[in-house]
Simulated assay, not measured.
Amino acid sequence: MGLLELFLIAVGLSMDAFAVSVCKGLSVRTLKAKHAVICGLYFGGFQLLMPLIGFALGVRFQSLITSIDHWIAFVLLGLIGANMVRESREHDDESVSDSFRFMTMLPLAVATSIDALAVGVTFAFLQVDIVPAVSFIGATTFVLSCIGVKIGHVFGTKYKSRAELFGGIVLILMGLKILLEHLGFLG
């Protein structure tokens, strides 16, 4: 997997965290650097941890399903992406708390990184060098989450659904690319 592909996956995975960070930015009256850093650390940390856990699970079961790994990658990334696209079209009015406490941030970090767990399983099947990959994903999510808090504070909710839509489309396209490569349609 090349750097460009990894970057696109990292950005795609970061979009949920970015969207939540935008909402967090909306909720603060006076934006402080610590708000962005807290979001970045929670979301980036979980986006690093979850694919690592998924990778460990994938490695354990790899010998059982090597012959269908490209289909698994295609289905997992496609489902995750489709879910993100669907969520981008929903117009629910979430009540956004200005709390950056552990009990508020932890469930948000877990919820926004579940898709990264599935990507970690996919990485095991593709034999990706996991430590640099998850470090890159975590760092990308950290940066985008910090930016999201600022954007949310400055521009409002207008970018939330677009971010989720973009992330979902990227993941669907990456899954399709993996499938087409394994079926011999792409070199």
Rank of each mutant, 00 (worst) to 15 (best):
D69A: 13
L57R: 00
V131M: 15
V28R: 07
L41A: 14
I80D: 07
T140C: 15
I169K: 04
C39W: 03
A73Q: 01
A111E: 08
I68E: 02
M105P: 01
G78D: 05
G12L: 03
D115T: 10
K150G: 05
F18N: 07
L186T: 09
L186M: 10
T141I: 12
L26M: 15
F43Y: 14
L57C: 13
G44R: 09
C146V: 09
G168T: 12
S97V: 11
V22D: 05
S88D: 07
F100C: 09
D93L: 15
L186E: 03
A56I: 10
R162H: 10
Q62H: 08
M15P: 07
Y42G: 03
D98C: 12
L13Q: 02
G81K: 09
W71A: 08
M1A: 09
A82I: 15
S113R: 05
T30E: 15
S67Q: 12
H182L: 05
S95H: 15
T112E: 08
F55W: 08
F7L: 15
F43K: 10
L52P: 02
Y42T: 07
H182D: 09
S97D: 14
A36Q: 10
L108K: 03
E90S: 14
G40K: 08
V20G: 02
S67H: 13
G187S: 13
L3P: 01
E181A: 06
L26G: 06
G168D: 06
G167P: 04
D98F: 06
G148K: 08
H182R: 04
K34G: 01
W71K: 06
E87K: 13
L57E: 00
M103L: 14
V149C: 13
V128A: 01
F136Q: 05
L117G: 12
T66L: 12
S113L: 08
A124W: 04
H91Y: 09
A111D: 08
H182Y: 11
D115K: 12
F61V: 15
L76D: 00
A73E: 01
A36N: 11
V149P: 02
M174P: 02
D16C: 05
L180W: 07
G152D: 06
G81V: 13
V37Q: 06
V128D: 00
G148E: 09
G78P: 04
E164W: 02
S99E: 12
F136N: 05
G175E: 04
L186F: 15
C23E: 13
L52G: 11
R29E: 14
M105Q: 09
G40P: 05
G168Q: 07
F74D: 01
I38D: 04
Q127W: 00
H91Q: 11
L108Y: 05
T141W: 13
V134M: 07
V154P: 00
A109R: 07
H70I: 11
V11Y: 06
K177N: 13
